[in-house]
């Protein structure tokens, strides 16, 4: 992720009141998750599976925190079971911050199936989402999503795409 976008995302996450992050280290999000993991304003939980991360975020919300899951879109697909069985079924808010790999221009050709599948999967799960590509879009997207997840009582997603990643 480009440094400027990562810095904007970090600031927006804190400004939005997100105080709990579950993350599976993702190469595209290195510039974001490493500083977040050292930020005392958020509880950072490194998970071994995105499925586990969804459950942990759900528990954190039930415990009064405002959670976000920080994952690559490959891991988002893995977490779809937990999302449907957990926060979608119960109506539990959480912010899904997803690096959208595999779009046109991404040198990681092996991520292309996830580039194809991520948005249709979000739509089929009725998860409200917004795709952003520019640093200037970051703050508005994060603050808006954090507000909407509360109004909707549901997970909402931001896809970090194209120019923000590479």
């Amino acid at each position: 992720m480009k440094a400027e976008g990562a810095k904007a995302a970090h600031e927006a996450i804190v400004k939005a009141g997100i105080n709990f992050i579950a993350c599976l280290p993702d190469s595209a999000f290195q510039e974001l998750y490493i500083p977040l993991s050292n930020d005392p304003r958020v509880t950072y939980v490194q998970v071994a599976s995105e499925n586990d991360g969804v459950g942990i975020c759900m528990g954190a919300w039930l415990g009064g925190l405002k959670p976000a899951l920080l994952v690559e879109n490959t891991g988002f697909t893995l977490g779809s079971y937990a999302l449907m069985r957990g926060p979608i079924a119960f109506g539990v808010p959480m912010l899904l911050l997803i690096s959208h790999r595999g779009e046109l221009g991404d040198e990681r050709w092996f991520s292309v199936p996830f580039g194809w599948g991520t948005k249709p999967l979000l739509e089929s799960m009725r998860i409200s989402h917004r795709s952003i590509e520019k640093t200037e879009e970051v703050q508005d997207a994060v603050l808006g999503a954090a507000k909407s997840m509360n109004s909707l009582q549901a997970p909402v997603a931001i896809l970090f795409s194209g120019g923000l990643l590479f």
């Binding site: 709990f20 499925n51 459950g55 942990i56 975020c57 759900m58 528990g59 954190a60 415990g63 925190l65």
Partner: peptide, 24 residues
């Protein structure tokens, strides 16, 4: 009491809850 009603998520949800409410 919080019923998860599916395989797999009980331990994860309980962990997140315990982290959210460390005094409980």
């Amino acid at each position: 009491n919080f019923r998860v009603r599916t395989l797999g998520l009980c331990s994860s949800i309980a962990l997140g809850m315990a982290l959210g409410l460390p005094q409980r």
